[in-house]
């Protein structure tokens, strides 16, 4: 326990502000994700969840505050340097490259560390992808796109994954498959920051939650000790 206490959080965000051009979107976001945790950002449309992930990655217009990854400050780094520290993003719009084949999409993100998943492992998690390798990236169904968007960041050796609404708009059977994948990754020791609108899904995989409102963290909960009062809070804030 003593050593676990000393290990820095995988991600520590403090006083994070972010802008798109002139619009000030994040107003002092504070939270942390500890090694091996699955932490979920909840919040209504437009609360700033996606912007938080982008600000951590360094792909917003401007950001201030502190984003420490494994104890190392990254606020001044460009996004390619952040990625090379072992941070990987699965963006909300999935961002599959249409000008690349499925195989090229899968192989695109460069290796940033040892210990990425082998291709065979990825194909056991997502058997559909193995059959579509030669297809164009633009030819996939929504579910296949989502699988590819997750699969391609598992190869790289990044151990901290940010998944932005991976179940959005997908059929229940695929949502279950993605839930199982997240649980499997957690068992393998990946640290995951999830963004979800679907609390019932988040509940099945998360250790802790933070609720975002108007560009800051309103409240945090641990899954283990959610009581009736917390559920009431969630109900009020999210309408779940």
């Amino acid at each position: 326990m003593a050593t676990a206490e000393k290990a820095p959080p995988t991600l520590a965000v403090a006083g994070l502000n972010a802008w798109y051009g002139e619009s000030h979107i994040l107003h002092g976001v504070d939270f942390e994700v500890r090694p091996g945790e699955v932490v979920t950002l909840l919040g209504r449309n437009g609360a700033g969840k996606t912007t938080t992930l982008k600000a951590i990655m360094g792909i917003v217009g401007k950001r201030t505050g502190s984003v420490a990854f494994a104890g190392r400050e990254t606020i001044g780094l460009s996004s390619d340097r952040v990625a090379r520290l072992g941070v990987a993003i699965c963006p909300e719009e999935r961002a599959i490259f249409a000008s690349l084949s499925v195989r090229e999409n899968l192989m695109l993100p460069p290796r940033v560390a040892a210990g990425g998943l082998a291709l065979e492992r990825i194909f056991t998690l997502f058997p559909n992808l193995a059959e579509r390798l030669a297809s164009g990236g633009g030819k996939l169904s929504g579910g296949e796109q989502q699988m590819l968007a997750i699969a391609r960041i598992l190869r790289t050796g990044a151990r901290f994954l940010m998944l932005d609404e991976p179940t959005e708009g997908l059929a229940p059977v695929i949502v279950r498959q993605i839930g199982a994948t997240i649980a499997e990754l957690k068992r393998e020791g990946f640290t995951i920051l999830l963004v979800e609108q679907n609390f019932n899904f988040a509940r099945t995989v998360s250790d802790r939650y933070y609720v975002m409102e108007h560009g800051h963290i309103a409240i945090g909960f641990a899954n283990a000790d959610l009581d009736a009062n917390d559920m009431e809070q969630l109900h009020v804030r999210l309408g779940v």
Binding site: I59, S78, S79, D80, A83, F97, S99, E104, P109, T156
Partner: peptide, 19 residues
């Protein structure tokens, strides 16, 4: 493939670690 990716979506290509 790096080149095509960076042409199509430079922001995401960069967020994957491409310079």
């Amino acid at each position: 493939a790096y080149l095509r990716a960076a042409t199509e979506n430079p922001t995401i290509a960069r967020a994957f670690g491409l310079n």
